[in-house]
């Protein structure tokens, strides 16, 4: 007689991985390829370059602030200032151009063409950064076709003299970094329920008021993320300046490159890189403080007394 015994499966305690497991690959990646190298850069910035005939790239037997002193001289301060100016103006230009574009794609454009428009925004990213930057030289060259066209049709009296200037760098960085602002901006605007804008209208706000008091504050995280995404890599960019900036459009990235690769002076390049990081942090902190202050002022002014005076 066959007897079937049904046994309850043994109760097993399910092993649960700790919550941070998912973050391990990310932490390891940033640890090995970011944090540790950056630590080396910081340490190297206090060392010095050995003499020409000595071996090795960095000497650490005498640590000093000499590299920082050498970097923080008027000539190099001008380069830092120029870099921060281009990064600031570039970010501002990206906001001025990118905000309406993102607003249009997220809110005004019909959903059918929305995806296509987003694809068009990233089309330039399909080409190498260097190539799409160098392409501007063909368009804007003094003897190039645009210059010849404008001259031949009497639209200009002289040829274009725009390459190898700060303006050329600014133009190209806006072109190169604009999608980095449009995307987070689009996501933020897209997430705002249309009902919010309708409610604002129902309560008597006009289009401008609705945009400034409802849409923009709700999209602020996207604007902040986009601006940071543009500002930080832009401040460290050296490809654009190398290709289009000539001597005048020199940015601190070029100086770091020149110290580290051309001059083989890693400690000085490291010091310049550390100074750049601190400058970026300072600018971001200042911007955050300014925005917080602005919000407080706006809040104070917007207070409405509805009669429940305490």
């Amino acid at each position: 007689m066959a007897q079937t015994v049904t046994q309850a499966p043994p109760t097993r305690r399910r092993l649960r991985a700790p919550k941070f497991t998912l973050a391990i690959p990310g932490f390891m990646w940033y640890g090995f390829f970011y944090a540790i190298p950056v630590l080396f850069i910081v340490i190297n910035s206090f060392g010095y370059k050995p003499d020409v005939n000595e071996k090795g790239a960095v000497r650490l037997d005498k640590l000093s602030f000499d590299n920082y002193r050498n970097i923080w001289t008027p000539d190099f301060r001008d380069v830092f200032w120029n870099t921060m100016r281009i990064a600031g103006l570039g970010t501002l230009a990206c906001i001025i151009i990118g905000l309406p574009a993102a607003y249009f794609i997220a809110i005004k454009a019909s959903p059918r063409v929305r995806a296509l428009m987003l694809v068009l925004v990233i089309v330039p990213f399909w080409m190498s950064f260097f190539v799409r930057t160098a392409a501007w030289r063909i368009v804007l060259a003094k003897n190039g076709f645009l210059s010849s066209f404008l001259l031949d049709h009497g639209l200009r009296d002289t040829r274009i003299e725009f390459l190898d200037t700060k303006g050329a760098v600014l133009l190209a960085v806006v072109y190169n970094y604009l999608p980095l602002l449009i995307f987070p901006m689009f996501v933020a605007l897209d997430r705002i329920e249309p009902a919010m804008r309708e409610a604002s209208k129902d309560l008597g706000a006009g289009r401008v008021k609705t945009f400034l008091s409802v849409t923009l504050p709700l999209a602020a995280p996207g604007l902040a993320a986009g601006s940071v995404l543009v500002f930080i890599p832009l401040a460290g960019d050296y490809v654009t300046a190398t290709v289009l900036g000539g001597a005048k459009g020199n940015m601190i990235g070029n100086v770091i490159y020149s110290f580290t690769i051309v001059s083989q002076d890693q400690p000085k390049g490291a010091a310049a890189a550390v100074v750049l990081v601190f400058l970026i942090l300072a600018v971001l902190a200042a911007a955050a403080a300014l925005i917080t202050l602005l919000r407080l002022v706006l809040k104070a002014n917007r207070r409405v007394d509805i009669g429940f005076a305490s």
């Binding site: 370059k49 003499d51 020409v52 000539d75 190099f76 001008d78 380069v79 120029n82 001597a247 005048k248 459009g249 020199n250 070029n254 100086v255 020149s258 110290f259 051309v262 001059s263 083989q264 002076d265």
Partner: peptide, 15 residues
């Protein structure tokens, strides 16, 4: 090394 230092200063000053 001094020559390279001067070279970097010239490049910074040219900007």
């Amino acid at each position: 090394n001094r020559k390279v230092e001067i070279y970097n200063k010239v490049k910074a000053a040219a900007g």
